[in-house]
């Protein structure tokens, strides 16, 4: 997973191991797999100030110099980069090539000279980072996969991650907690669970949780049967991120004034989960693939709709 914050679990997604297994040289496997097994931490370095959803626009430069690359540029939102040793970087190795083709995957050492990590704080109170590279040397043997193949490698990693989001446990946990809360909490002398509106809301949310579970299971089924999942993998991602936001928002309404109390504060209910979810879940609608963009992918790949025409004249950044 791309982010570490509170509700969303630990550091980085463990995408490196499988990718090195698939694309690494024998030497790289020997070097990195034991380190990963021993718990080496990686931060993901995809996003840049001018490359978000449109990741292929990334500009950080990796210029060849002897047996090394010299890195110059900036990454944004590198969650965990202040704790991690390594940076899993998508960098531009060839600026002359079309934008998807000139990108390579490189492992950089975050403790190397010339690397600066500065703090960014999210609305949920978690830390993420900006990372600046100023003439940082990295051996070319740290490039995973062929030069220029970084885009394809990244895409397959992101797709795996999107499918993985379908197994995200929080929607079910939060809905179960809310149902329990509604049964146990009285307002005006009556349990909340007797309020017809609240019954409708919670029933709908628990249906949504079932749909999410079925989307995830279908994805696994398709993977087992070797079917094309390029369009169905985002179902889970989109549905889950929007459901998480609905749960938090409607959960707040069910809990009323108590909903806004933070974890640890006096009178906070459900360990402040709903308040935290209200803020945390926002990131999931645009992070890990923007839902807006993914919907276009679904319709074009899954139903054969034509792509949006490219601009004849790209807008200058």
């Amino acid at each position: 997973m791309l982010w570490a914050p509170g509700l969303l679990g630990g550091l980085t997604g463990g995408v490196q191991g499988p990718i090195i297994m698939q694309h690494g040289t024998p030497e790289q496997k020997k070097e990195w797999l034991p380190k990963i097994a021993a718990g080496a931490q990686f931060a993901l370095g995809y996003t840049e100030p001018n490359a978000g959803t449109d990741l292929a626009s990334l500009q950080i430069r990796a210029a060849k110099d002897g047996n090394d690359y010299i890195l110059n540029g900036q990454k944004m939102f590198s969650t965990g980069a202040h704790n991690a040793r390594y940076h899993w970087l998508a960098a531009r190795t060839n600026p002359e090539m079309p934008k998807h083709k000139g990108v390579s995957m490189i492992i950089a050492d975050l403790t190397a000279p010339g690397v600066t990590v500065t703090k960014l704080t999210t609305i949920a109170g978690d830390r993420t980072n900006e990372v600046f590279y100023d003439n940082v040397r990295v051996p070319q043997t740290n490039r995973i996969g062929p030069e220029g193949e970084g885009w394809n490698i990244t895409r397959s990693a992101l797709a795996a991650e999107r499918g993985d989001l379908g197994t995200f446990p929080w929607p079910k946990i939060l809905v179960d907690e809310l149902i329990q809360y509604a049964k146990e909490t009285k307002r005006n002398g009556k349990p909340l669970s007797e309020d017809p509106q609240i019954r409708q809301t919670l029933a709908q949310l628990s249906m949504d949780v079932s749909v999410l579970r079925l989307f995830g299971r279908r994805l696994n089924y398709m993977i087992e049967k070797n079917q094309d999942i390029s369009w169905s993998a985002p179902f889970s991602k989109i549905f889950e991120s929007e459901l998480s936001q609905r749960i938090a928002n409607q959960g707040m309404n069910i809990m009323g004034l108590y909903g806004q109390l933070e974890q640890g504060s006096k009178y906070a209910k459900l360990k402040g989960h709903i308040e935290l979810a209200y803020l945390t879940m926002v990131v999931r609608s645009f992070g890990g693939g923007s839902n807006l963009r993914l919907r276009s992918d679904i319709a074009t790949r899954g139903m054969g709709l034509p792509r949006e025409p490219q601009l004849a004249m790209p807008v200058k950044k």
């Binding site: 249906m207 807006l292 919907r295 319709a299 899954g302 139903m303």
Partner: peptide, 22 residues
């Protein structure tokens, strides 16, 4: 090819799949 139409279709695809699986 308009993204608004992509969105309508994508939403319906998810909706219909949810119907199926349920």
């Amino acid at each position: 090819s308009f993204p608004v139409i992509h969105h309508l279709i994508a939403n319906a695809m998810m909706d219909v799949d949810a119907c199926k699986f349920l």
